[in-house]
Nucleic acid binder design. Structure first.
Lengths: 138, 138
DNA sequence: CGGGATCCATTCCGATACTG
DNA sequence: CAGTATCGGAATGGATCCCG
């Protein structure tokens, strides 16, 4: 229904998004469905690493020292399930496993990197806003 | 140290991000710090609504019917704390409260909207990847 | 080396009831 | 109308031990 369709525009009046608020079923909402995974604690970090080049399990572990191997395994598995990452096992002795980004993952990383750049560029502004909010004691 | 700095480049060899993996303290990592909030279950939805125009509490509640008033209050409060949203109370009878986006929030919404567009455009691809992964019974 | 299995603490979030 | 307070279940994530 047209009344429930919202056009989100930027300043140049170019439509940037159209969101229908009438039917927001969790199982079928792309935003919640995909962002829930990307928004996990370790997903973006691993996507950033693998956007550079393929890495082995142990290499990723050393690059992100404060991740538990449980979460590394699980996050990589989830990223593979969503089609962002490929896994290849080399039957060496002992075995080694390499993770690399797929084309879908690279296409995701474009807009994602822009958002992460924004986060870094505006981290101070957000922290200042938080401090002000907390000091005003609301 | 230079060895721990990773340049993430796109196909045109333009550096898009530089990530230092050596010091990723949770309290000081902008990505995790900001994305953790944005990645919450309701944040993006409310940012999308308020990117269009200001809304009152009850209007937002009706736009997103499956949110509890507890989470609506809390998410709006968190968005306000991070400086994305402003709250204005009108001392009418009964009182009404309006929420509107700040300039910081609008600047965030630019790259965020691109990511959300990607999520919608590629939802089918991800769902297909999930189905294939699950059927391959890994 | 690259996991899997188990246990446990914390956090998130929904439901419900109450208030100025 | 726009919240606050409390409770409890579910999900998230860390620590530890085991295994081919």
């Amino acid at each position: 229904m047209a009344a429930s369709v919202v056009n989100l525009r930027n300043k140049a009046e170019t439509p940037v998004r159209t969101v229908e608020f009438s039917k927001l079923d969790f199982t079928n909402c792309p935003v919640r469905d995909l962002i829930a995974q990307i928004g996990g604690k370790w997903s973006t970090l691993l996507l950033e690493a693998l956007a550079q080049k393929p890495y082995r399990f142990g290499e990723l572990r050393r690059m992100v020292p404060d991740i538990s191997q449980r979460m590394l395994t699980q996050t990589l598995r989830d990223l593979q399930r969503d089609g962002y990452v490929e896994r290849e096992v080399f039957p060496t002795k002992p075995p080694s496993v390499e993770y690399r980004m797929t084309d879908l993952g690279r296409s995701l990383y474009g807009p994602l990197a822009q958002l992460l750049n924004w986060a870094e560029a505006n981290h101070d502004a957000v922290r200042a806003a938080r401090k002000k909010f907390d000091e005003t004691e609301k």
